[in-house]
Amino acid sequence: MDNWKIEATKHTPEIYFDATNNVLSMQGESYPENVDQISQPLFSWLANYLAQANPDQALTVNIELTYFNSSSSKMLLDLFDRLEEAATTGNHITVNWIYEADNDSAEEFGEEFKEDLEALTFNLVKQ
């Protein structure tokens, strides 16, 4: 796989896949008018990645969003469901949900995502 990147805008996060370390990261804020502008390229990249990836090679997904709106929250749930499914079928995937100590909303959102996941390793990482 190659490195892959979507640049951040004022209302969408940077999404970056570091092929050397096998790390996908999403960082910034997410409140576009239409969340398809992020979810479509992200999910098509992910499908492609999962089709090609060696399941034994661990994938780390770092999510560090200081703010996201309700439609981005749906997109995140969709992302975690896809990762959960891949984890269930044997892919080694770890999600790090990274948030600042004073961002109680981000902490709560992280806990709520974690509650519904089983196969996927989901770490809450306070900074």
Binding site: Y67, N69, S105
Partner: peptide
Amino acid sequence: ASSSTILKVFSMFVE
């Protein structure tokens, strides 16, 4: 205002 309050007001504004 605390950064947590600022984020919550901002979030309400955006929604």
